[in-house]
Amino acid sequence: MLFAAVFAAGCHRGPRLVIGSKDFTEQIVLGELLADAAQQHPGPPVEVVRRFDLGGTLICHRALEAGRISVYPEYTGTALADIFHQPPPADAAAAWRQTRADYARLGLRISPPLGFDDSFAILVRQTTATRLHLETLSDLARVAPRLRAGFGYEFMERPDGYRGLARAYHLHFAAPPHVMDLALTYMALAARRVDVIAGDSTAGRIAALHLRQLRDDRHFFPAYQAIYVYRPEAAPLLRPILARLAGRISTAAMRAMNAEVDVDHQDPKAVALRWLATLPAQ
């Protein structure tokens, strides 16, 4: 197993690509996307090995450093905060450059931004947004004293979570936010038990539950642009494939794919293949 997982293009007939992912839907879909794009790539057939569902950020990172996997999907803000322990800048381009530089010091490379951002998303029901004319977080701050909020524990604890947000926008809700399980905040919002939650910008449930994400007009949330991180040996093979994907996956597209897996219970591979079919070939 260990041997099979090692990236060893030279010893085999075709090049070999071991793709990892963290343990949630979006990561698995991104892993599938890359795997299928690699297999569709013209040239000598690529032997693709899937190592999905590995666990959290640090596990994936260590596997990549050790050469057990060749590539996995990551987010700029997450890499900066959790791997390199740096405050992630709010400016997306600056964050990407800093991420690339940090990884380069470890001898690793990153792809251009894939096109979407997976950050905290302040969500309200569409009906609430329409009734109170909410577009941005500044709009929200205006009516917050009439609203109830429910946030997950992570959002309450992180410096780039509730505390920072409340300071940045002078947010004051009707009562201190209910602190609860992240998944339950979506249900509480849909059940009208709370009016504002902090979810994931790419969550499939945003569309399914008729929610609206409010725009971060003061750019408080750091950029969590999706990228692939890879080992230099895989660069010759990956570079053209990544070029095909880069900038193409919009937030709406990622949300839709997440929804197809999470809400409609479709197979991630089928979802990935369907989306790839909409891409122009190289």
Partner: peptide
Amino acid sequence: GAAIGAGGLGEFIFRGLAT
């Protein structure tokens, strides 16, 4: 109960898990 905002010692556990 901390998963639904009921407080209690679970709050420490949930916060600890989140961070």
